[in-house]
Computed example of a mutant assay.
Amino acid sequence: MTVSATAPDGVPEVTEGADLAELLLTALTALDADALGDGDVAVVTSKVVSKAEGRVVTGSRDEHLAAETARVVARRGPTTIVRTHHGLTLAAAGIDNSNVELGSAVLLPLDPDASARRLRVALLERTGRNVGVVVTDTAGRAWREGQTDIAIGAAGLVVAESFAGRVDAHGNELAVTAPAVADEIAGLAELAQGKLGGRPFAVVRGRADLVLPAGEHGAGAGSLVRAEGADLFGYGAREAVVRALRGEPDDVAPFGAAVEADELVGLLHAVLGVVATTDRHVVEVPRGAGERAVVLAFAHGWLPVAGHDDDADLRFARSTP
């Protein structure tokens, strides 16, 4: 199998209202009349999508960070990692102040999957070619230095393959293997585009098996985002401690689903040395366990049951049914 990425030069500065399909096709035609074929994947950076959609704003990243943030995940020095309204976890909400006029910043597209769908439809109408489309942005990775491009928008593409239930050459059944192929395509395209090359478009060829029939846009890159609470790292290590100590009900979701009652009973004994009891729906802890029991329970999805007098034992119920 051969998979290739081609990124054309000669794309002019993109401004609000720009026709991205026309810009891409013009740049490709200068390379080769057949530079875009059925089954190819057209890749475009989120920055030029945002510029074309009028998402350039005046001011610094910090001035716009709060509005683009659903919640803060972690802060370390000048770096703020947030969950955006798209569900993406990115430094500074993906707001970029490079390759833009001084004093301006570029926000992410409002709906990257919708942006990808519009570009796919335009390319089909003008060329008759059925292609997939991926909108990319740059992201860091937990446990890894450096950054790579990922898919934040997609249309007409299988964004993740599923190998669950298949068997390898040695007869081992694969349980959870699910390559995020849209992200892999984004990373491959970035190698051809380069960070400073002025090449916001790329065409990836060789995975036509991932491209959906015309008119079928697929689940989009949004389907690659884990739901709130499904990520094992909903907060940074320090932030998790702070959120648990605060104990605000709105902060409980990123900690994930509530543990089973028996697990909480075991944790209370292992961490605090207290003997708790449970009927599976309520966990009861001696009042002497104090606030540490409240914090431990909160971090595991259990909240105090209100309405009992101060001398009674602490009682906890799941934060969600």
Rank of each mutant, 00 (worst) to 15 (best):
N172I: 15
A74I: 05
E291S: 13
D309V: 02
E63K: 06
E16T: 11
E239M: 10
E161G: 12
G87I: 07
D38L: 05
D113H: 07
A91W: 01
V305L: 12
L23N: 06
L90D: 06
G10R: 02
D231W: 07
G247Q: 09
A151D: 08
A297K: 05
S115Q: 10
E16W: 03
V100G: 01
E291K: 04
R315M: 08
V305N: 04
V241H: 03
A67E: 14
A7L: 12
G140M: 13
L268A: 04
E263M: 01
A214N: 00
A21K: 01
K47G: 06
L314M: 11
S115P: 02
L272H: 05
E63H: 01
T277E: 01
G77D: 12
V242N: 04
R117M: 15
E263A: 12
V131A: 05
L102F: 09
E16I: 05
S4N: 01
V271D: 14
D262Y: 11
G146Q: 09
A27V: 05
D250M: 08
V72E: 15
A293N: 06
M1H: 09
L65N: 05
T277C: 03
D113R: 02
A66R: 02
E184P: 04
E260G: 12
E22D: 10
G87Y: 05
N99L: 06
T6N: 02
A192N: 07
A178N: 06
T15F: 09
E263S: 05
